[in-house]
Amino acid sequence: MSGAGPKDLVVAGLQSVLAAEHACVYGYPVIGTQLSDAGQRGQAHADEAAHRLARDALAAQLNALGVTPVAADIEYQPPNPVRTAATAQQWAVQLEDRLAAAYRYLVLCAVRADSAPARKQAVDGLIGAAAGAVYWRRLSQPDAPTVAFPGTG
């Protein structure tokens, strides 16, 4: 990343976040199919819709910067085969954790680029992703529903 200009740094961070959003958009419909609880299914649907909006907004932001947004992968691998509610919840936690990591990377890129708007977007996104993980983490590991440093795991 040495020699990259401020715009390049911000673009790299945004592309990282977009890649993580692609994974969320792919993952939540699969997660929803394994959840028998109506409330959890509803949350999965809501999360999918929110991530779809975020993905589209990021793609538009990158287009406005004159950059081709990174494309989605053909498929995404969960940590374990998603065959039960528990494995579905674990995948949701992983998706949100990876999104938090991408936003934390954007924080770093924004500091290096000295871009206040990008930094605000990154901090907001990191906090949002951490909050998004709590619902699923409370289901999959109720004794430890939080982590000390979202985005670093």
Partner: peptide, 17 residues
């Protein structure tokens, strides 16, 4: 900055819990 952002995010989840 990244550490403060991560701690803020963690505390946001604490507030939810």
């Amino acid at each position: 900055a990244p550490v403060l952002a991560s701690i803020a995010a963690s505390l946001q989840t604490h507030r939810m819990v």
